[in-house]
Design a protein around this nucleic acid. Structure first.
Lengths: 342, 342
DNA sequence: GTGAAAGCGCTAACAC
DNA sequence: GTGTTAGCGCTTTCAC
């Protein structure tokens, strides 16, 4: 990497002159226009990029602001990151937690491992990571990270955890359906090559509980015409298949809000009455569910609280490094509406 | 701020011993258990937080990775940030642009100024900022930022710009309505204390064009019962007001997807036929619009392209600092559906 | 087992 | 106008 010394050598001047010019104070310090031009040009030609670590180290009179890596995968719910940022700002400006900065480290589901070299360099004061696949969890388990880690999913002993209890959600939905006297229920989720582990946990727990209650439980599956990027569309396709196969359970658990919106629109078109013919509970949050006719019962991932607890935990971990990891399970929020009353 | 020297002095040992212990290599270097415990405890008690700038500077054999500030306000569309991250990852891993890291700097609409001290310290290799209110633009205009800046909105001569032409959108929608022979049209937007400047630009341009075409244009306004956080709900309220006042134009431009979903659900309940009684064009993107009955014509903010161009521009600016700022205007994407055919 | 010292890239005070 | 020098906080080599 090219430093100001390289530039200085190249143009036959001292590093301080180069520094002066590059930080835009050449004029003020009365560096000659010719020198200035030469330095700028050379820096440009040599592809100079200032090393912010050096600059910060040299000039910061104030304290160092902790830098936290925020590993992010595309399948996180889009609302989550926005919420996280809002909550962060509120908590910092209210003085509830110390100032900290989040650096985005993108990764793809199942490929968290690719960030290994970055994460183990210890170039961050902390790490926030929502693992999605088992591979990501396995990677975290086996990797020895020296800085505080807050995971947003997964069973990893050595790190802090803020999460929801997905198994409990699956179980509870089945219990509600059982309490309502259903004998034939269904569960619908997106047909991805590989589902997120959280989806899988809710699913298996739902199915197991149904079995325990002797309810016939069916998984809604459909052959999709190639990859479907649009979950609303996918919901429609799955619902159409149900109807075609005359496979209509009396209660349905839909694992995604967009999927639900698509499916429900088909049900209402096809004259399936909700909740009379079929009760519906949706995991996810979407204003649409509320204004649907009838309004749809939903269980939502508490983005605000998760963000809040995550930031709180990171703050504590920064202040008291080496303390035992904390596991914080946040309750999901049930909003009972007409599609499936309590 | 407390450094390893402070700790060393406190425990009466040398900085290198402290460093060894704190970086978890005490065992390997056969530091005594007692010393180790003492150092750890003292560091904890004194609130030691490692200075990553110093660590990076000292240990990085590799080149410095540019650090870009990403100013983010809560009103940015939630999908945008996710898209940005995905696009970023693709572009970096494909080698299209150099590696760079984004640091999130949250700000509230109109309060970008509060980031001034951070932004002018030059602690970042670049800055990406989507200003929302005029105050934010004014702040950027008057502030002398030394590093490359890519703005995602606003007329600011000295910085790069990647944006859409909001005025053109407003004008074009009015033109479509005129071409379809409408005489009485309407525009609906969220009743916020203070609208984003982009919304305002589309609005005034729409209204001006309507006037030029001698179309009667009406702004849909409603007294909301207190603050409405839910835009779908707000859309319903506004639509209900239209119906109550018997104020139904033959063509309507709705400036937000969620607003539209709420409004349209009311229209269809109340027997207003789309497009026969009223044509509708929506600014925004939502899978819902596509599966509505009838499907809704929409104009979407091209998050992917904007992200792409923004990252491309930043990459160029890093490689060639001091080159003239570029203004890149991206076309919005029209998807004509039944609610208003081309 | 622990300490001394060098040096990462940069800025700024001061010297000339 | 430009150069010399010290030092930001940390890690690491080498010495003892």
């Amino acid at each position: 990497m090219v430093s100001i010394y390289d530039i200085a050598k190249e143009v036959g001047l001292s590093a301080s002159t180069v520094s002066l010019v590059l930080s835009g104070r050449g004029e003020k310090m009365r560096i000659s226009r010719e020198t200035e031009r030469l330095i700028l040009e050379t820096a440009n030609r040599m592809g100079y990029i200032p090393n912010m670590s050096a600059r910060k180290l040299r000039t910061s009179k104030a304290r160092h602001i902790p830098e936290i890596a925020l590993c992010w995968s595309p399948t996180q719910h889009s609302l989550f990151l926005n919420t996280f940022i809002n909550v962060l700002q509120d908590m910092i400006s209210s003085g509830e937690v110390r100032e900290m900065r989040f650096i985005i480290l993108p990764y793809k589901n199942g490929e968290l491992e690719k960030l290994e070299s970055i994460l183990i360099t210890n170039y961050f004061n902390g790490i926030v990571v929502p693992p999605v696949f088992q591979e990501d969890i396995d990677f975290l388990k086996k990797t020895n990270i020296q800085v505080p880690v807050v995971a947003l999913f997964g069973d990893i002993d050595q790190y802090n955890l803020v999460s929801v209890d997905n198994r409990k959600v699956g179980k509870e939905v089945a219990e509600i359906f059982h309490r309502h006297g259903h004998h034939r229920v269904g569960i619908m989720q997106s047909e991805e090559k590989k589902p997120a582990l959280s989806v899988e946990q809710r699913r298996s727990s739902f199915l197991n509980t149904c079995q325990a209650f002797k309810m016939e439980a069916e998984e809604i599956r459909g052959n999709l015409p190639g990859p479907v990027h649009n979950k609303v569309e996918e919901g429609k396709i799955l619902a159409e298949k149900m109807i075609k196969d005359n496979d209509i359970p009396t209660a349905l658990f839909i694992q995604n809000d967009l999927l639900a919106i698509g499916a429900i629109s088909v049900f209402s078109e096809q004259g399936i009455n909700i909740p009379e013919d079929m009760e519906i509970i949706v995991y996810g949050v979407n204003d649409m569910l509320e204004i649907n006719n009838p309004p749809i019962t939903s269980i939502s991932y508490p983005t605000g609280e998760i963000s809040r607890e995550c930031i709180l935990l990171m703050d504590k971990a920064l202040n008291r490094p080496g303390t035992k990891p904390v596991r914080k399970i946040i309750d999901t929020r049930y909003v009972f509406r007409e599609s499936c009353l309590y």
